[in-house]
């Protein structure tokens, strides 16, 4: 209900934010606050200082630069869901937003930077960012760094982000062709967080083609970090997509996984998470395939 006291600092720029982080022993970034504030109200988090970065214009915007889509770290779930550019170039990312819990009230203020920096296994962006081969751009005293999402998230609620760093943007490589995305999720009913969430990033030549140029499929919620489903990808990549092949690819989803790393807790046992994987992979791929007609090969 009442957080502990903290001092409040409004950063004018990324550089300023980093300076503010450096001058406090225990400062936290305040962006959308949707993950942070509930923890502070329960006094589970008691930072001495909050650095409000929401006035920093350079952290906003979703734009294309040559071969990259840059999503400003402050982009809200709502902005990402509504982005025509993302729907066109990296559709798995806006598709994912529809599944993020909390309702439009949360989508209106929660940010992609805050979401990925929290690295909660039940959160949804990680799979989408992993499947799209995204880089997390962080700034700190040593300047700007690009960290692949696979390296950025170290484990449940743990990242490589230093206390003096912040996420400034997400960069998604642009692929040429018809890129399609899907996200399917089994929710835990109270929190709405993912027990299993499957992000699919497929590339075709055009909107009629059923030849899969590239298939990148990642699952979040299953393990401490999101993980690519290599076996499923291999069954699809470079192949004509047929109903049989789609099912076989989904069937194979767990074969390349380290099953000992699957989360096993009150939300779902490891065994059950693995059971949910195949149908969610199917759903996710089907969503990505969309209206495209698949023919069985004889």
């Amino acid at each position: 209900m009442h957080t502990e006291q903290f001092s409040y600092h409004r950063a004018e720029s990324v550089k300023h934010a980093v300076e503010l982080l450096e001058t406090s022993d225990d400062a936290r970034i305040l962006a959308g606050g949707q993950g942070l504030i509930p923890l502070m109200k329960k006094r589970e988090l008691t930072p001495d200082a909050l650095v409000d970065i929401t006035q920093i214009d350079e952290l906003r915007g979703i734009e294309r630069t040559d071969d990259t889509i840059r999503i400003g770290g402050l982009s809200t779930h709502r902005e990402i869901a509504d982005s025509a550019l993302l729907k066109e170039t990296a559709p798995v990312v806006p598709r994912t937003v529809a599944h993020i819990t909390g309702g439009q009230q949360v989508h209106n203020v929660a940010t992609i930077g805050g979401n990925i920096a929290r690295a909660h296994p039940g959160y949804d962006y990680e799979g989408a960012l992993l499947s799209t081969g995204s880089q997390i751009v962080v700034s700190g005293p040593a300047g700007k760094q690009r960290v692949p999402v696979s390296e950025f998230v170290r484990g449940p609620c743990s990242t490589t982000l230093a206390e003096t760093q912040l996420v400034t943007s997400i960069e998604i490589p642009v692929l040429s062709g018809d890129r399609r995305g899907g996200y399917a999720k089994k929710k835990e009913p109270a929190s709405g967080n993912a027990i299993v969430g499957v992000a699919t990033d497929l590339l075709f030549d055009d909107d009629q083609s059923t030849l899969v140029k590239s298939a990148r499929i990642a699952v979040n919620g299953l393990q401490g970090c999101a993980v690519r489903l290599d076996a499923t990808e291999n069954r699809l990549e470079g192949k004509q997509l047929t109903p049989d092949r789609l099912e076989a690819a989904a069937d194979d989803a767990s074969s390349s996984l380290d099953s000992s790393a699957v989360l096993d807790n009150k939300k779902a046992s490891a065994e059950y998470r693995l059971c949910l994987l195949e149908p969610q992979v199917q759903k996710s791929i089907r969503q990505a395939v969309g209206e495209r007609t698949l023919y069985s090969q004889t």
């Binding site: 909660h120 296994p121 835990e188 009913p189 109270a190 929190s191 807790n265």
Partner: peptide, 20 residues
């Protein structure tokens, strides 16, 4: 909590939502 993000928790006490 009606929503719990504590790692390993059940996720919270579920009051049914409209979607349920």
């Amino acid at each position: 909590p009606l929503r719990d993000e504590t790692l390993g928790s059940s996720g919270g006490y579920t009051v049914p939502k409209a979607e349920h």
